Amino acid sequence: MAKILSVVNQKGGVGKTTTSVNLSAALAMSGKKTLLVDIDPQCNATSALGQSPAAHHGLTGTESLPDSIVETDVPHLGLLPGSRSFHDADMLAETGDRSTARLRKHLDSVMEEYEYILIDCPPSAGAMTETALTASTEVLIPIQCEYFAMVGVTQLIGT
């Protein structure tokens, strides 16, 4: 059963994507079957792994999640590419049990194939991040050593 780790912080520029990409690559290079899920509409984790954003996000459709996962140049590392579609971003940002249930259903369909699933979240404490947190077994909050970053972490812990 995979550990699902969300990399979150409502502040931008603190290293969420860099941490997500490097940690998922390191886990994969150590032989752990790993999936990186890019839910940030900026799609930087997707492009960092040399892939293009998807026309539609794999978490918003009705097709099975494995059909949307692409292999990367890193052995044992799969990627669910992000999408810049406003419609997909709205669907991922829905609040409530329906959105969480959809994410869990999709992740459950690949739980046995991966040891780690990392979710690169957008820089916000909005519904997309909340849904990812609800679906996660672990949370990683990268921060910069500065006052406003610490204030943001305090607010995020409240979420």
Rank of each mutant, 00 (worst) to 15 (best):
residue 80 L to G: 06
residue 89 A to M: 11
residue 74 V to S: 01
residue 79 L to E: 01
residue 42 Q to I: 07
residue 64 S to Q: 15
residue 107 L to H: 04
residue 57 H to E: 05
residue 73 D to R: 15
residue 46 T to G: 00
residue 40 D to N: 10
residue 43 C to K: 01
residue 30 S to V: 02
residue 31 G to P: 06
residue 50 G to W: 05
residue 11 K to M: 08
residue 32 K to H: 12
residue 65 L to Q: 00
residue 72 T to Y: 01
residue 70 V to H: 05
residue 98 R to V: 14
residue 90 D to W: 10
residue 20 S to I: 00
residue 81 P to E: 11
residue 91 M to V: 03
residue 41 P to G: 09
residue 31 G to A: 12
residue 65 L to I: 11
residue 66 P to L: 15
residue 41 P to K: 05
residue 83 S to K: 03
residue 59 L to C: 08
residue 28 A to W: 07
residue 70 V to C: 11
residue 81 P to S: 02
residue 101 A to M: 13
residue 95 T to A: 10
residue 101 A to G: 10
residue 70 V to A: 09
residue 46 T to K: 07
residue 59 L to T: 03
residue 107 L to C: 02
residue 59 L to G: 06
residue 91 M to G: 03
residue 16 K to V: 04
residue 87 H to L: 15
residue 105 K to H: 12
residue 39 I to P: 03
residue 56 H to L: 13
residue 44 N to Q: 09
residue 35 L to N: 00
residue 89 A to K: 00
residue 76 H to N: 15
residue 82 G to M: 00
residue 100 T to L: 14
residue 103 L to Y: 10
residue 45 A to G: 03
residue 13 G to P: 02
residue 21 V to D: 02
residue 32 K to Y: 14
residue 45 A to W: 07
residue 49 L to H: 07
residue 35 L to A: 03
residue 48 A to F: 14
residue 26 A to I: 09
